[in-house]
């Protein structure tokens, strides 16, 4: 069981573009409720009724780093925010990855902005002595972020681009073909997760995204069906185990 969710006011220490339409925001304050890679925070934005759930990319003693892609009005508003202002944040949401489940050679398979939570996971695996290889898929070269960051802490980093402008031409599943692995973790758009589910040769964990109302299990807005019953992506997830998924053809 994770620590309880906390509502905290965090200060923006950094908010900078790191790739085409992708920003890194560092938030400082009491982040003690954020305990596990794969958890997310839920940000209140002025003038927007619903919060914005964003996964945690990294954590230090008193900061969380989030990466976000500008896709709508909320994220566009975030991109305009100056350092020094405070945000109302629900911290420590979701179950996060089970880091202890990794065994042997481990793949971290990320698609687009979905690669973000795999970074803190990679750091945690490294601390546990697990050998991890990052497989990161993007649409095109200008979308790539955190390649050197992953390279610094992973045994290897393989880039795939859909248009072939960098690395393997195609999807992460194309890049996975030649790799040997015993376990994997993945996060990305649902079509990618589905492709990884069918292409993967080992057990693994999947981190999902869904439109959420509350982010902490109250509204039933993000429920999905699994082998072990109905699950709320926000509270019982966002990480589900491969064996729980109902994508068998």
């Amino acid at each position: 069981m994770n620590a309880r969710m906390k509502q905290r006011f965090l200060t923006i220490k950094e908010n900078e573009p790191i790739a085409r339409g992708v920003f890194r925001m560092v938030l400082q304050g009491d982040v003690s409720a954020v305990t596990t890679p794969g958890q997310f925070v839920n940000l209140a934005l002025d003038g927007r009724f619903l919060r914005r759930p964003i996964s945690v990319c990294d954590r230090s003693e008193d900061t969380v780093t989030i990466l976000y892609k500008v896709v709508g009005q909320g994220t566009a508003q975030m991109a305009e925010m100056r350092t020094g202002r405070t945000l109302d944040v629900l911290t420590g949401l979701g179950n996060g990855f089970d880091v202890s489940a990794a065994k042997g050679a481990t793949l971290l398979i990320g698609g687009g902005i979905g690669a973000a939570p795999l970074y803190w996971l990679a750091r945690s695996l490294r601390e546990n002595g697990v050998r991890a290889t990052a497989v990161l898929g993007f649409n095109t070269e200008s979308d790539i972020y955190y390649e050197s960051e992953f390279s610094a802490i992973c045994d290897g980093t393989v880039i795939a681009t859909a248009d072939g402008s960098r690395g393997v031409r195609g999807f992460v599943t194309d890049a996975m073909k030649d790799l040997q692995y015993d376990y994997f973790y993945t996060c990305g758009p649902e079509p990618m997760l589905k492709a990884v589910f069918h292409a993967s040769a080992s057990d693994g964990q999947f981190s999902f995204e869904e439109r959420m109302g509350c982010g902490f299990g109250a509204c039933m807005g993000c429920t999905c069906k699994t082998v072990s019953g109905w699950k709320r992506i926000c509270r019982d997830g966002p990480v589900l185990r491969k064996g729980e998924l109902t994508w068998e053809d």
């Binding site: 009724f49 619903l50 439109r211 993000c222 999905c224």
Partner: peptide
């Protein structure tokens, strides 16, 4: 899903 959508001043 999606079961949730944002609106001006509500959802």
């Amino acid at each position: 899903t999606p079961r949730i959508a944002e609106t001006p001043s509500g959802m």
